[in-house]
Write a protein that binds this DNA or RNA. Structure first.
Lengths: 136, 136
DNA sequence: CTTGACTCCGTAGTAGAGTACGGAGTTATA
DNA sequence: TATAACTCCGTACTCTACTACGGAGTCAAG
């Protein structure tokens, strides 16, 4: 567990220094201790956290949702039904996302195999390849 | 195939009228024919298209990426290697998204089952439940 | 045939998520 | 120890994706 400056964190997480400061302001990462000089002093855990935020953002979660996601924590035994329910909602939401992505992926795969010969033989855009998959 | 006004399209796709016009301006949906009065005249296909855009946006694709996605079309036989490659890139990208979502889902599931007793018994937030899954 | 809802257009405003700036102090390395 | 690179902070700017406005024309239900 080495001590990291904000620049090191940023580089390791693949974001800009300003982004790290921004996430701190927004409460997505904890305010780290400071050196005498006022410089922020991180441990490598924060790198994981930033990577998680980035990934989740890429998956269509807003920072607000990510905040919620990161805040979900359950004390074993003292199982708060509220938190549990929030977590289960999230799981449901994520399952739907996975399904949608699988549909799009399938459509693209059909498209790549030259639409497997079926359908109007002219152009074959992705939406046609998706058939009725849009309903789900 | 009934004729739809912009308001009907918007309602059926669950977006605002302004959003439909915006997508038209951005080239995400085709400019529809107009009545004598200048009113836009749609077929229900555009509803599918808007639904697709919405779904894709929810999955973390930008409108620019969605534009590309919608533009992917392969003429069977005249298989343009370029388009094919773009499609395969997208497939790869989507596979990664699915994997990430599965990791987050898994972590949430562990969390719901009270972190299955392992790890520091105190709080058990999502990042701990994700172990080293962040690497992928 | 009226009248309330709908549509037209261009322009302007907003929210979310960064990104840039600039002057002053700090740190690492040659 | 000099000096380049890094960090501090607050504020302001940018980009994306809408969302609202307003006045004038159009449509459709009663």
């Amino acid at each position: 567990m080495k001590e990291l400056s904000i620049g090191h964190v940023a580089k390791q997480a693949g974001v800009g220094v300003e982004t790290v400061r921004y996430y701190e302001r927004e409460g997505l990462i904890a305010k780290p201790p400071r050196r005498a000089s006022g410089y922020r002093q991180y441990t490598s855990e924060v790198v994981e956290r930033v990577l998680f935020i980035r990934r989740a953002k890429d998956l269509g979660f807003s920072l607000k949702e990510i905040h919620e996601l990161l805040g979900l924590r359950i004390k074993p035994n003292a199982t708060s039904a509220v938190v549990r329910d929030r977590a289960m909602e999230k799981i449901e939401e994520i399952s739907e996302k996975i399904e949608s992505l699988q549909h799009i992926k399938q459509a693209l795969e059909e498209l790549v195999s030259a639409c497997s010969g079926k359908g109007p033989v002219s152009e074959c855009p992705i939406l046609e390849a998706m058939d009725g998959k849009l309903k789900s």
